[in-house]
Every structure is written in structure tokens, then in C-alpha cells.
Design a protein around this nucleic acid. Structure first.
Lengths: 309, 309
DNA sequence: AAAGCTTACGAGAGCCGTAACCATA
DNA sequence: TATGGTTACGGCTCTCGTAAGCTTT
């Protein structure tokens, strides 16, 4: 058994059992990949992969159990390398963030500029995607830190820290009837108009749906976008009223739009910072988190991430 | 980085940094060991070992941190091998027990004979040692299952299951004054005579000491043995009265000795079954435990041992 | 002087990649 | 027929072990 064999097994699962693809990702030959798989299966005396003829289709029962161990072995091997780098050059390296539009656009800019000033030598990559993809990037190591409102807190292999809380708000075009309407608004007031809000699974959308449903109201959602900028643009065009995260509307800068409070209608949302459990985090990664949550120390973060024992 | 390098690092720590010894344990050449260490230190760009001149003396700070990861990697590699063996031949393999005299002599015989009948093909090794050595054998993989009263429940890397509870009892030579004394005995009654009991750290001795101390009594312990047989022999010779685990005296079989109850004087003791956290246990190991504790299923044992994630 | 680590070097095993071949969709 | 996997084989690297040399106690 060697590390290359384990890398191949892991990658085979990730690449949906296409060994040609595995070979190219691991920068080696496809025949070598084949041979390594045969070798380790021989050594263990058990089949890891299900096959139909020559094609690999999935994992055997044995393979599934083995995979858990393979993952931790490779994670720990990575931890050793990262730890060594940390000792060699604490202020150099790469940090991959995975986050949603809302965070990237409204919450993180100040944090990121502070971080760049503190660690100019760290190559910072910001990946903007969906919450589920953020989860997947954290799990397979493509991202170090994930930041989002949805999905992250649920997975047992992710460790999460609350980042900040926020509320939804209503945005209408200047001159819209709701602007003059008695405040605070009710759910009925809002549901009287076509609504533009987030896509399913983004930025508190699940909570919006639950709120309307609990009130027995069926809102007319005419458009679902992945980010606030798109929502605002169409609100400006008069397509409907916007329902979005309050922090994404800067009253001073928006022209032609009015912000109406809705704190009392929709429950508070919490955005989370997430890390992969069992993964050693570089010092600057901890510092990044501390820029978001100044009360979290490097030691505390490392300890939260560590499995027991 | 490869597995041999990691094995060498781990073994270097265990063998007190004597590379010659490491080489012989790992059945390789000493020069190879040296080179592997240099190689991995070069690869990581950090020293793992403290040196004075050419001699290795200990781990650097970096080395200490790395060691944790090295241990889990090698444990998981072992888990994969054990799991594969399980699939290949569920009823064959080796099971190493580490236990104290008390357990080996009085609690386990029936369990072990039952196990041998159920798994005649499993090579069963029974190591009789001290509780601290049992802990160490579990931690470094020389033993699969540990059984003892002391020490095991404390270590965070061990998972323990209560096995059974028992009390201490007093044993005196036939015709000894205590035999005719009013029962039940008091601590003072006992402390009036020279006492023979277990060595420090064995079979409830810590609890005995605490009990006397709490009562403000200083017992006259004239002899401390590691097992009940020795204690009984010297009680028979009239050296003093014995204070030992009740189950180690079979009234029917002992000649020349009387057993006097002491349940009311000393707190109940619990003997534990211990496993290494994170180590995959063979099916027959789980069955062995089930012979001790029929309510523990294979699935339950495996789950208890598994770190989260 | 003995024990312990490093360096040098030759033999061999294991890994990799090309190419031809076979199987599946 | 295109995609994907296996087998065969030569080259090469990496690992191992012997032996000699150097350090430390």
C-alpha cells in the first residue's frame, strides 16, 4: 500500500470512476492508474470497485468502508505538509475561500482587504458558488474556508462558527405604493405584489418560503435570482418588489430604490464560517477567521477542528 | 512522503530514538533508516528530531505535532488491512489480549474457553502485565483488547466498557481471631492486624488506600503482591490478613483460609474492557467482548470506537 | 573502545509511460 | 466507432543493504 494508490482510489470516486480522467488529474498515465488499482486490490485480497466487464461502476461494500480510512489518511498527509509549510514560511501560501455572492459582495470586502494588507504574500483565491458546492469544495479540499448562510451547519464533517446575523428587507422602486403604506408592513401587504427574491437554497430563501407557508400565504414569486444585484436591477425596472438581505442595500448609494424594514416578519438569519473537520488550518487561515470573528483564537479554531483522541 | 518513512518516525519515538534498534524492529538496515529520516525532513523542510551532533535526542516542536498525524495515518492503514482480512477470512487471524493477573486468573477463563470453541482458528495471545503496560500495549497496537480495573478509563485514546463490578474481601488463616470476631468487620478491626494486599496501581489498591486515609487510619501493610495467589499463600503462612478481590477466593476450594465480607467497608470496583480509539476491530474481537458483555453488539462497539466525522 | 549515525555505492525492486490490444456503449 | 480499460515491455527512479568512515559517550 502506498500513497499514490490511495490518491488514485480517492480520485476514482471523485471522478465518477473514470480512470482516464483520474490519470490526467493526477498527472500520470492511465495504465499506471489501472495497475495501481489492481495491485492494491491484490494486496488486500478484496475488490474495492464494482465492475461491469472492464468498466468501473462504483464501490463495493468493502470499498465504501475503506474509503473512510483512505480519506483520513490523505487528509492527515496533507496536514503534515501544511504544518511543515507553516513552520517554514508562516506568511506565505495559498488560501482558498468558497462563498456565495451575498457574502462576497457585502460582508467580505472589508475583511479581505484587511487580510491582504496583513498577508500580502498569501495567494488568496475567492470562489463564488452555491452553498452545496461550497460544502463539496470544503469536503474535498478545494477550499479552506467556506462562508454561507445555508447548508454548512448540517454536515458532520464540517465545523462551523456563526459569523453574523442579518434580516431580510423589502426593496421597492421609488414611488411604489408600498412606500407610502403604513409601516411596519405585514406579510399580506408584501404578498399583494409580485416578488423578486433569491433562488432556492440561497441566502435565506428556505426561511422565506417557510414563513409564507406558516402564514398560509402563497406569494407570487415572479423571479428568483442568485444575487441581490440582479434582484435590485429588476426591482428598478418595475418587475416587482424585492425581498433580499438588508445588508445588500446601501440606502445612501442606491438610486431609485427605497428600503422598507421587514425584521418583524422574517426570522433572523445566521451566516456561518465553515472548516473541514480534521483538516489542519494554516496560521493565516485562522487570522482570516479572526478578522471575521475577533473572539476566535488560532488555538480555539485548531481545537474545534481536531477530532478527539 | 511514504509509509516506510512514517513507520520509521513512529518507531524512533517508541524506541527512544535509537535508530539501530528501529532498523532491527522494522527488519531493515540502519543506514536506510537514517536516510529515510533525512529524506522526509528535507521534503518537509523542517527538522523532526532534536539532535546533539549525530545522536537523536527527541522530537522538535514540529515533530511533536506531526507525530499525532503520523499515528492516525498508520492506524488507519492498519485498519484497512484488518478490514480486508476480515472480509477474506472472518474466522481467522490473531487476537491479543492484555490483562492483569486478577482478570486472567478469575474472570476470563470461562470467556476464553468459550471463545476458543467459537473461533478455533484464531491465534489467541494473552499478555499478563500491569495496568499501565496494558494501556501502553493498547496505544501502540501490541494488544487489541485490554481488561483491567485501573488506569484504562482515564486515557482519552482508549474507549472503555464496564465489564463487571466486584468488592474487596478479607481472608484470614483458619483459627485467626478475626474469624470469631463480631461481623460485619469495621476498618479498625482490620487495621489492627498486619495486612497483605495488592501492589500500588493493581486491582483496586488505590481505592483501598483512599478508604483508609479517609477514615484517618494508617494500616500496617506488610506485603504488597501483584496477585491474589501470592497474597493467599502468605496469609496461609500467618504473615498477616489478606485484603483482596472477593472473586479470587473460591470458598469451596480454599483450604486453611476463611473469607470475611468487607463489601460495606470498601466501595465497589469496576473492571473495564478497553479498546484503542480509532482502531478497527475484527469481528471475532467484537465477539470476544460480547462474551463478556452480551448486550454489546458488533455495530455498537465499532461505533463507539470510531472518531466522529 | 563501544555504540551509534552518516556517506558511498552497487544490486534489485517497483513505478512510470508508450504502445498495442481488448471490451463496452 | 469512440471511449475506456488491460496487458506487455523497456527505462528509470527509488529503495535497500553492505561496508567503510566519522562522532559521541
Amino acid at each position: 500500500m502506498n500513497f499514490q494508490q490511495l490518491r488514485i482510489i480517492r480520485e476514482a470516486v471523485r471522478r465518477d470512476f473514470n480512470l482516464t480522467e483520474v490519470a490526467s488529474v493526477l498527472a500520470t498515465s492511465q495504465s499506471g492508474v489501472s495497475k495501481h488499482i489492481r495491485d492494491i486490490e491484490d494486496e488486500l485480497g478484496a475488490e474495492i470497485f464494482l465492475r461491469r466487464g472492464k468498466r468501473l461502476l462504483g464501490l463495493t461494500k468493502a470499498g465504501q468502508t475503506i474509503m473512510g480510512y483512505v480519506e483520513t489518511i490523505l487528509t492527515d498527509a496533507g496536514n503534515i505538509k501544511r504544518l511543515a509549510e507553516e513552520l517554514r514560511a508562516a506568511d506565505q501560501g495559498a488560501l482558498a475561500l468558497a462563498t456565495t455572492h451575498t457574502q462576497a459582495r457585502y460582508a467580505l470586502p472589508s475583511v479581505i482587504s484587511g487580510f491582504r494588507k496583513a498577508f500580502p504574500q498569501v495567494r488568496l483565491a475567492l470562489h463564488q458558488t452555491s452553498p452545496t458546492e461550497i460544502t463539496s469544495m470544503l469536503l474535498d479540499g478545494r477550499a479552506d474556508i467556506g462562508i454561507a448562510t445555508e447548508a454548512l451547519a448540517l454536515h458532520p464533517d464540517l465545523v462551523t462558527f456563526p459569523y453574523y446575523t442579518w434580516h431580510h428587507a423589502v426593496v421597492v422602486a421609488k414611488g411604489h405604493p408600498l412606500e407610502g403604506h403604513a409601516q411596519p408592513l405585514s406579510l399580506q401587504d408584501i404578498a399583494a405584489y409580485p416578488i423578486i427574491t433569491y433562488h432556492a437554497g440561497f441566502t435565506g430563501r428556505p426561511m422565506i418560503d417557510r414563513t409564507f407557508e406558516a402564514a398560509g400565504i402563497k406569494p407570487d414569486i415572479v423571479m428568483a435570482a442568485m444575487d441581490a444585484d440582479v434582484i435590485k436591477a429588476y426591482v428598478g425596472l418595475g418587475l416587482g418588489i424585492g425581498l433580499l438581505a438588508a445588508m445588500s442595500v446601501d440606502a445612501a448609494r442606491e438610486t431609485g430604490l427605497s428600503l422598507l424594514r421587514a425584521d418583524h416578519l422574517f426570522a433572523e438569519n445566521t451566516s456561518y464560517i465553515a472548516l473541514r473537520r480534521g483538516r489542519f488550518q494554516r496560521g493565516f487561515a485562522c487570522r482570516f477567521i479572526a478578522l471575521c470573528r475577533p473572539d476566535l483564537s488560532e488555538a480555539h479554531i485548531r481545537k474545534s477542528v481536531q477530532p478527539p483522541s
